[in-house]
């Protein structure tokens, strides 16, 4: 069941902007309001927008449930792996092993208001990305499963 051409065109135009906005929320999670969960939810709404415009069948052929399930599992594994690296380096589980080292995302930050530098936060941006990927997969998968339940089973 697809909507009219106006709705489909509007969805096509809005889709990349919603994706970019969600990605911005995920990546800037340690600087501005937001984070992995919120950004993943926004990206999932982009997929829901496509489903609303084009109908379940057309989208379920393109975005398969297997791919989304793998996405979700990949996000969770990346999240746990980021936390496990700290264990390998001799610190505690979930230790922030990148903060203040000067490596990727490792610029040290002093106390007080600042304009915000993306290259800070240690493992927090990595975990934000991992959780964003997981939530994106999970919420889209819930929507797809529920829609497949409402379709008449032949």
């Amino acid at each position: 069941m697809r909507m009219s051409k106006v709705v489909r065109t509007a969805a096509d135009i809005l889709f990349p902007f919603v994706l970019i906005f969600g990605f911005y929320i995920v990546v800037h999670g340690h600087l501005t309001p937001g984070g992995g969960f919120q950004g993943g939810a926004v990206i999932a709404t982009a997929i829901v927008l496509l489903i609303a415009a084009y109908g379940y069948d057309a989208i379920a052929r393109r975005i398969t449930k297997d791919a989304l399930r793998n996405t979700e599992a990949l996000g969770l594994i990346a999240f746990i792996a980021t936390a496990l690296v700290a264990l390998a380096l001799g610190a505690g589980f979930f230790y922030n092993w990148l903060a203040g080292t000067g490596l990727l995302f490792g610029m040290p930050v002093g106390f007080g208001p600042n304009p915000g530098d993306l290259n800070t936060g240690g493992t927090i941006p990595l975990m934000n990305l991992a959780v964003g990927i997981e939530v994106l997969g999970a919420l889209s998968l819930i929507v797809l499963y529920m829609l497949s339940g409402t379709q008449e089973a032949a």
């Binding site: 600087l31 930050v109 240690g122 927090i124």
Partner: peptide
């Protein structure tokens, strides 16, 4: 300690 400006994210993820 964490380098993140957003304290809520620091608490949640660190």
């Amino acid at each position: 300690q964490t380098g993140g400006n957003n304290i809520v994210t620091d608490v949640v993820f660190d």
